[in-house]
Design a protein around this nucleic acid. Structure first.
Lengths: 252, 252
DNA sequence: CGGATACTGTTCAATGTTAACAGATAAATT
DNA sequence: AATTTATCTGTTAACATTGAACAGTATCCG
């Protein structure tokens, strides 16, 4: 009862990043604000949120903001990313060996990952740390040199490591997509990594918010027909749907 | 002027983890509390702190607490760790290739690292992320499987990667030391990694708070004579000093 | 030099927070 | 089932912190 409410409140804060006490009062009209306050106090002691004046913030989200401050990346479009993440989660089943790419979309995905028996490989140290809270997930990092703009590991070591592992399902983020040039990104070394993953993984799922459709970045790492599914936050325009049908791609 | 004060305030918060406005008012008696409040607001916008009722907290420290919550490690003895970190920093010079071990002591060390031209190799993803804010440091992670108790990467891949790199100076944390058994730790794979580092690095510096003297853990990774310097927060007892002199070890 | 910009200090109302107590509910023990 | 115990909840009132507004000061730049 109590535990449920607290868990729900935590969930809500984690997904939104922040909450005002006023909001909580509206969501729980029968619960006194003092109790809600005490719930926040409880969650703070668990180390999951910090209370601020008038509400509370998710610590996980704060870490992202800190990273964003150094990596000149913005924490934008969170709603779309959450929708994408939740859709992608449904493709999972326990016992799989999966790859999770770097980037904020994949970070949301990682945050929503259920605590089930999984083997995860990722080139993103922040994602690896996020997964620490799920004791049933075996976490592996590729190693290599850290790109401070994208928080991605890449280089010789990363490549070599991936070659030795088997991946069932790879969740990859794309910075751009066009029908002519397929999925592309802006960093040579990351593209190299992604290409290898696309070759090695049994099934490839691309996560991408629809604002990136119809654009190009320098390095293509996959064509439409190379992947298994494309996850976006809203239905695609007809031309893309048609192309997807022809290539036998799942649109989610 | 203003910038200096803000920088100093930030430093203070980062090292203590948290501050009350009252404290700030005492430390800056000539500055109005409104201005101090605005300084905090400024730092918050930079993404370095969060303001809480009555003060502010370091976001970096909060992330550590979150990690600690999952890794059943306590964030204790911070003062000793800071002293050790600052002493160890003095052994550094620009342009070096260094190894930084995992653990909270090394995390403090990483936080205090100046932004100079350095090559850093570490098996700790949280330390790697901490270093992102220093643009002149080249960050490399070993890769491998993540131990969620210690937040350390280890395994075949880590070993192989280290073999290919050259390290000038290795900063290693030890969980225990005794004259009979030398430096030891509690995890087999980590000991394996540390042993390799001790063999490969030109100079090895061990960071250890003095509470760990005279104790043993299962896996020894180095003897006194294998290292270059031992950094502790306070002078050691005579018997250790003598042993150190005999082995020609620097005590710092 | 003048004007723009960024920084500072004071006051006070608005807002959010805690402490303390008492009642309600659930859990454990007999 | 009854009783004790611990945990959770709601109310109130005193309290502390905050931010807005305004005015003054320093700094920069053409």
């Amino acid at each position: 009862m109590t535990t449920d409410r607290r868990e729900a409140i935590n969930q809500y804060i984690q997904s939104r990043g922040e909450i005002r006490l006023k909001e909580l009062e509206q969501r729980y009209p029968d619960i006194s604000s003092m109790t809600l306050r005490r719930d926040l106090e409880f969650l703070e002691r668990q180390g999951r949120i910090v209370r601020i004046r008038g509400g509370a913030k998710s610590i996980a989200r704060l870490s992202m903001i800190k990273e964003a401050a150094y990596t000149q990346r913005q924490v934008a479009n969170t709603d779309a990313k959450l929708v994408i993440a939740d859709k992608a989660i449904r493709l999972l089943s326990p016992g799989r060996s999966i790859y999770i790419d770097s980037g904020t979309t994949c970070m949301c995905f990682a945050q929503r990952l259920p605590d089930q028996n999984l083997f995860v490989l990722t080139p993103a140290p922040n994602i690896a740390l996020e997964l620490v809270k799920n004791p049933n997930i075996k976490i592996n990092l590729t190693g290599g040199q850290l790109n401070r703009e994208t928080l991605t590991l890449s280089g010789f070591n990363a490549i070599e490591y991936i070659k030795t592992l088997n991946i069932d399902l790879a969740f990859i983020a794309a910075s751009a997509f066009s029908l002519q040039n397929g999925f592309s990104c802006g960093d040579y070394f990351e593209a190299e990594l992604k290409r290898l993953i696309v070759r090695k993984a049994r099934q490839v799922v691309v996560l991408m918010d629809s604002s990136k459709l119809g654009s190009n970045m320098p390095y293509t790492f996959a064509l439409l027909q190379n992947i298994y599914a494309l996850v976006t936050e809203q239905p695609l325009a007809e031309e893309y749907q048609k192309a997807a049908r022809q290539a036998h791609i799942l649109l989610i």
